[in-house]
Design a protein around this nucleic acid. Structure first.
Length: 149
DNA sequence: GCCAACGTTGGC
DNA sequence: GCCAACGTTGGC
């Protein structure tokens, strides 16, 4: 899961009450579908810092709730407000994520590109802008190892 | 700050 | 249903 650290970083997640945060504001159907259909409580998450120097994997989190409607879609004051999301038939769905750890070694995007295990990884593919993508067990382990965890 | 890539919108 | 226009993402 990608996040811009200026907006919400792995440190912000660590410092949250219960170290848990609803992953709100996702407004892309594919990313929503991953949260709604694929994620299960306890699934491990690579926390990726985007739009920063350098971008890369900063830490580990895990899925901490069932999927439920994103309340910011109904909040007129939220920058994520979506008038087309009807509370009776919510368009946007989120899960909560819980802090697990900050990697001892930050794994930069440049390093990831050099790792043979990660050549198929979605975030490395050209032009990929999806903020949530599936990660294979092989990829996950390779990141953990490179990250010193 | 630039800009390529991509998703969404809306006129037709 | 097509596609031009537009807005956003995110590496650089």
């Amino acid at each position: 899961m990608k996040s811009e650290p200026d907006v919400f970083s792995i440190e912000d997640l660590r410092d949250r009450p219960n170290q848990t945060e609803p992953w709100d504001g996702v407004r892309n159907y594919q990313a929503r579908n991953f949260m709604r259909d694929e994620m299960k409580i306890g699934d491990q998450i690579l926390f990726y810092h985007s739009n920063t120097t350098p971008p890369g994997i900063a830490g580990i989190a895990e899925v901490a709730s069932e999927p439920y409607p994103d309340p910011t879609a109904f909040d007129k004051k939220s920058k994520y407000h979506d008038p087309k999301s009807d509370p009776e038939k919510p368009r946007w769905i989120l899960v909560e994520v819980k802090f697990k750890s900050i990697l001892p070694n930050y794994v930069s995007l440049d390093e990831m590109k050099e790792m043979p295990e990660l050549q198929e990884m979605r975030v490395l593919q050209r032009g990929n802008r999806l903020s949530i993508t599936p990660v294979s067990a092989k990829e996950f382990k390779a990141i953990l190892k490179a990250g010193g965890a």
